[in-house]
Amino acid sequence: MSIRVKFEGGPADGVVQEYPSINRALPSLYWHRDEPTELRAVYHLLGADPDPMTGLWRYAFTSQ
């Protein structure tokens, strides 16, 4: 089982990513990219259910 998430805000705004090794939405996710420049961010889950139209779990950027 896997989940698909959409990141909102911050450096990953609009990115849709699948996590094949996760079978439930977690309270927070760590996102990173190494190329072309290194970027890292923490995102928090929005809501208790995935978006009914897309089936994507939504995660919002949080500044640290």
Rank of each mutant, 00 (worst) to 15 (best):
P50D: 10
T37P: 01
L56Q: 01
G47L: 05
L26A: 09
G10I: 07
R58I: 06
V42A: 11
Y19P: 01
I3H: 05
P36N: 07
T62W: 01
P50W: 09
D13K: 04
V16F: 03
L29E: 03
Y43V: 06
V16L: 05
P20K: 13
F61R: 04
F61I: 05
D51Q: 07
D49Y: 07
T37G: 03
R24D: 13
T54C: 09
D13C: 03
A48I: 03
D34C: 04
Y43T: 09
T37D: 10
L39K: 14
R40D: 15
F7V: 00
P36S: 11
P11V: 07
Y30I: 15
G9Q: 08
P11Y: 01
S21Q: 10
P52N: 03
Y19S: 04
G55W: 04
S63G: 00
A25D: 13
R33H: 11
L39I: 06
R58Q: 10
P52C: 02
L45I: 12
P20A: 13
Y43Q: 10
F7W: 07
H44P: 01
E38R: 15
P20G: 15
P11S: 06
D34S: 11
Y43P: 06
L45E: 02
G10E: 07
L39F: 08
D13V: 01
G55D: 14
W57A: 13
L26D: 03
G10C: 12
L56D: 03
V42T: 10
E38F: 15
P36R: 13
T62G: 09
M1E: 13
S63L: 01
Y19R: 10
L39N: 14
E18N: 14
Y59C: 01
D13W: 05
M1I: 07
P50N: 09
F61A: 00
A12G: 15
A60K: 11
H32D: 14
V42I: 11
